[in-house]
Amino acid sequence: MTDTASLEIDRVSKRFGDVVALREMTFDVRAGELFGFVGSNGAGKTTTMRIALGVLTSDGGQVRWQGKPITDETRRHIGYMPEERGLYPKMKVGEQLSYLARLHGLSASAAKRSVAEWTERLGVAHRAGDEVQTLSLGNQQRVQLAAALVHDPEILVLDEPFSGLDPVAVDVMSEVLREKVATGVPTVFSSHQLDLVERLCDRVGIVRSGEMVACGTVDELLAGGSVRLIVDAPQAQRGWADGLPGVTVQEHNGSRTVLELDDGADDQQVLKTALATGPVREFTHRRESLTELFRSVVVEPKEEEAA
């Protein structure tokens, strides 16, 4: 696959009875890389992460770190953030984080320093003496991230880390993840917030029905995708672009029309046709977004199967 300084998921398979959860799932997360792991609910993201953590065993394939199979000792150096709250609700924040740091091998003094650092960094230092259950969901999410970071992990595996966060908290968490990646820590996170994935990640893997169906940088994934043209012509009537060669109307909302252009379609002919109706306030090319790509490789195939 890639160099040895990476987390490798190599042809990992898993069944639950008659249900195939993973079918030879394969990808890698490289040193100093932020990898976005996306797919519909039930696609296999959490199962993959749990196998990497040793919470579940696979039926086949292998998980490796630095070219070697992951062991219990290796897993002590992984920072894991589950989608479900993995904290003791009646335990105080600071005591809990210190306890988790000690479980990962830190001394009492090192654990104390790390807890102070991460609660301050994530904006929950003032709640260190409070029980977790008294915190808002957003602050619980911040503490959950602190629990993943408090032992200075060599790998980060985060399941929906941005879920339930307000925009300010999203910015804080994004900055923290960028900082960890800059130190060489390979980081993989799942998310349904595809605009955030597109903005943050070095590479993205899209999962469907337990298989990796697309993987690469955002530019690589979107290369060759359709070109969208946004035209705002206030005097144009609905249907003004119908019949133009190589042009498909995707959306018409008031004066604004979104068109998809085939290769070789003449955008100047589109502009000429729009101007013939009156003034044009906007004429903008836009590439396909990650959300649109996701729909095309995940949502539409499922709908076709259902049909």
Rank of each mutant, 00 (worst) to 15 (best):
V143S: 04
V170Q: 13
C215G: 12
L122G: 03
A169M: 13
V172D: 07
D159W: 05
D130L: 09
E154Y: 03
V143C: 06
L177M: 07
S190A: 13
D171A: 15
R127V: 02
V188N: 12
R203M: 11
H192S: 10
A128F: 00
V176R: 13
E198Y: 03
Q133N: 09
Q141R: 14
S209E: 06
D130G: 01
D195S: 14
D202C: 12
L149E: 06
H126R: 15
E160C: 10
E175W: 03
R142L: 10
P186I: 04
P161H: 09
G129N: 06
R208M: 01
L200G: 14
V170K: 14
D171V: 14
R178P: 06
L194K: 11
E120M: 07
A146Q: 09
V176Q: 10
L158A: 05
R127T: 06
D166I: 14
D159A: 05
V185E: 08
D171Y: 04
D152M: 07
E154Q: 14
A147G: 01
A182T: 04
C201G: 15
V207G: 02
V150K: 12
A148H: 10
M173D: 06
Q140Y: 02
M173H: 12
F189L: 14
M173E: 11
Q193P: 14
V207D: 04
R199Y: 00
F162T: 12
F189D: 10
L156I: 02
V213W: 02
A182K: 13
A169V: 10
V204N: 13
A146D: 08
V157N: 06
D171S: 15
R127E: 04
L158G: 04
R203Y: 04
E131I: 05
T134P: 00
G123R: 11
L135A: 09
R178W: 00
I155S: 01
E120W: 00
Q144G: 01
G138A: 11
L122N: 02
F189W: 05
T134V: 09
G216T: 08
P167V: 09
S190W: 13
S136E: 12
A146K: 07
L135T: 03
V176F: 01
Q140E: 07
V172H: 05
C215M: 11
K180E: 07
G216R: 07
L165H: 09
R121Y: 00
A169R: 15
